[in-house]
Design a binder for these strands. Structure first.
Lengths: 193, 193
DNA sequence: TTCATTTCTTGAACTAGTTCAAGTTTTCCA
DNA sequence: TGGAAAACTTGAACTAGTTCAAGAAATGAA
């Protein structure tokens, strides 16, 4: 059950069996049904979670009802509102399961205890945050410099198995375009082949 | 000379005088003339730098010659291409001084040595990266959900003293719009007051 | 299996933002 | 301090993307 979890952590730092066990101890498993919300804007984000199975969307809901997707998280990804979790302040994001899912969760006090007990964890999160930051930097550049068509092709090129797991509206919310235009882009691109 | 530097670090972690001295030791001061490039795409980013004086732009240059600004860095900000620096791989970003500036630089081997010598530094960078990541997440959401007018107002609201230090083209490059449209937005907004 | 609900598609009219070109203003530096 | 270069402005014609509305297809719960 912890195999994906361990594998995923070993990509960044090495832990002995004993250390891994110590690392795992404060995490608890939670089953989440499709459409269930793990976090709603306004709440304090009480957890940081590792997706062991399933798929989530982390999104922002504005005054006009528009849902902008910050990212999708499938197996091997982490879900949280970093800002809300690390500062224990009200979240501006929503987290929803898009499939029946399974997550390993840790709460704020336990996470802090982990930093103390196992200093390597500090390094682990430093590296993981740097990586996600780099990826977001690239997406930011695409967002301000590319057309919707280009961003769509970039997305399916980078995450080839994601599209079939997502509704078109969700993908539109990620690319920052209307669902109707998403539909037109797909048609146009399919025609070119 | 190190007062802004120290102040800026103390916001995240506390260091004794001896620790701060140890932290500073591997940094060296460099004067940079306006328009000088500190990093060009294709090079490996050899430094991580703290801006002590002046202003920089970190930008991406695409095939069509379009310059998209990832961020501006004034006094108190850090400049580097995280991806290129941490993995010592070719950079895709450019860093240019927009004013005569002064930076404190550290090289890759010295930075790694610092992580070893002074474990608190791991925490410092973990926190700093989390903060910049949170800020970038918000900008990403604005980028995909707001109009150019709204993003412009958001920028001047958040960084009220920046606009006067930047050319309109640079700001357009940050907002992801053409310089001509930037000009039209400013005119429209000025009229409303 | 059904029918209600949601998701996707399509077209027409619209708005936000781009491109080009020409003129004006500002900056820089010899 | 004058003149070249760069930055900014403006308008006109264009393109990318939105909105609305209506119909078609897919999905889901009883």
């Amino acid at each position: 059950m912890y195999s994906l979890f361990r594998e995923s952590i070993e990509k960044h730092i090495h832990l002995t069996d004993a250390e891994f066990e110590q690392f795992c101890a404060p995490f608890y498993l939670q089953q989440v049904k499709k459409k269930q919300m793990l976090l709603r804007a306004g709440e304090v984000c009480k957890f940081e979670g590792f997706v062991n199975k399933g798929c989530f969307r982390i999104y922002y809901l504005d005054e006009k009802g528009l849902e902008s997707v910050l990212y999708f998280a499938i197996e091997g990804w982490w879900i949280t509102d970093i800002d809300s979790f690390t500062n224990q302040t009200a979240s501006i994001l929503n987290i929803e399961a898009l499939e029946d899912s399974e997550v390993l969760l840790i709460t704020y006090p336990y996470k802090n205890a982990l930093y103390e007990e196992l200093p390597k964890v500090e390094k682990l999160y430093r590296i993981m945050t740097q990586k996600t930051h780099t990826a977001l930097q690239r997406r930011m550049i695409s967002s301000i410099s590319k057309t919707a068509d280009e961003r769509y092709l970039e997305f399916i090129g980078k995450y080839p198995f994601m599209e079939q797991r997502l509704s078109q509206q969700n993908l539109a919310g990620y690319l920052g375009i209307s669902p109707e235009f998403m539909s037109k882009i797909k048609k146009k691109i399919a025609k070119k082949r």
